[in-house]
């Protein structure tokens, strides 16, 4: 968090030096400041700033790719030449614990077409997912746990 503030201040300093208070100036300053902080990594061991920043960037890219790929699947089904629609509700046991992690997982599940998070159990141990292609409950569970939840845990822990 401190590193993020540093990075932010460096970006503002860059904008001030160039007298360029625009979004382009901010992005350029932020990128340059980030590079400088990254080069000075050994100065502050044990921080997770770079990991989280780059990780979330990669996660968003992966999510966009997933949305794109599986949108095609749903579109083909709707138009009538894709896999058959077999609605099912599957219980997915959760390894994520905090509010942040559960919200992120549930939103990601909903954004990937074919799956839709319905409800979280009151003890927050189970996520109930409605799926369009539920021929096999174990496959749906593995898709969510191995692909999505693993990435979220790697990113936030």
């Amino acid at each position: 968090m401190t590193l993020f503030l540093f990075n932010f201040l460096l970006a503002i300093a860059w904008m001030a030096f160039n007298a360029d208070f625009s979004l382009t100036g901010f992005v350029a300053g932020f990128a340059l400041g980030h590079l400088v902080l990254w080069l000075a990594r050994p100065l502050y061991p044990g921080q997770r700033y770079f990991h989280v920043l780059w990780g979330s960037f990669g996660y968003i890219l992966w999510l966009v790719k997933e949305i794109w790929v599986s949108s095609w699947k749903v579109a083909r089904s709707v138009l009538g030449f894709g896999p058959a629609v077999r609605p099912a509700v599957v219980a997915v046991p959760l390894d994520v614990r905090t509010d942040m992690e559960i919200t992120l997982l549930a939103s990601s599940v909903t954004l990937t077409p074919g799956t839709l998070s319905l409800d979280v159990s009151p003890d927050r141990r189970t996520l109930y997912v409605h799926t369009m292609f539920g021929e096999d409950a174990a496959t749906v569970r593995d898709d969510i746990k191995l692909a999505m939840e693993r990435r979220i845990l790697e990113l936030l822990r």
């Binding site: 949305i67 949108s71 749903v74 579109a75 709707v78 138009l79 009538g80 629609v85 609605p87 909903t110 954004l111 990937t112 077409p113 074919g114 839709l116 319905l118 409605h130 369009m132």
Partner: peptide, 23 residues
């Protein structure tokens, strides 16, 4: 258009949501 078609063609309300919200 696919989302709207899905809302018309898919069998029940929850399945229709798959098409509408994401597409």
């Amino acid at each position: 258009l696919v989302a709207a078609l899905g809302v018309v063609r898919l069998p029940d309300a929850l399945t229709r949501m798959h098409a509408s919200s994401k597409a």
